[in-house]
């Protein structure tokens, strides 16, 4: 069981090594002539206005919360789907119940306007 994961580890080391070497190479070969204007945040050539560390819309947070709920549902569906042929009709009705509950939550979120991006 664990042996099948060793190649993944080796591949990971290879890929991480490739990334690190690229970082070192671009640091080593590139010219280094920094000046204050070059190092300032890019705003189409204008002098930057204010800071980028500002607040952003709460909608992004809402999307992340909804994503968590539905992604957990997907996690439950995966093992169910793999053994589905053995479960037969029992598995169908069990999962039907589960999906109906999820759907109820989904419709509630929709009616509450959680899915509207622009209002």
């Amino acid at each position: 069981m664990l042996e099948t994961w060793v190649p993944v580890l080796i591949f990971f080391i290879l890929v991480a090594g490739f990334g690190t070497v690229s970082l070192v190479l671009s640091y080593a070969f590139g010219p280094k002539k920094p000046d204050a204007r070059k190092l300032s945040p890019y705003e189409c050539g204008m002098r930057p206005i204010g800071s980028a560390r500002e607040r952003f819309s709460v909608k992004f947070y809402l999307v992340a919360m909804l994503f968590l709920l539905f992604d957990i549902e997907a996690v439950f569906l995966f093992p169910w789907a793999v053994v589905y042929r053995d479960l037969k009709l029992f598995g169908f009705f069990e999962m039907l119940l589960f999906i109906v509950v999820i759907l109820a939550g989904y419709i509630y979120a929709w009616k509450k306007g959680a899915l509207e991006w622009e209002r």
């Binding site: 999307v63 994503f67 997907a74 995966f78 789907a81 793999v82 042929r85």
Partner: peptide
Amino acid sequence: ISYELSLTLSVVGVLMIANT
């Protein structure tokens, strides 16, 4: 993250047929 949901859920149908 929004499209990852439909991406993972679309695969479930295939899994039910292939069972692996």
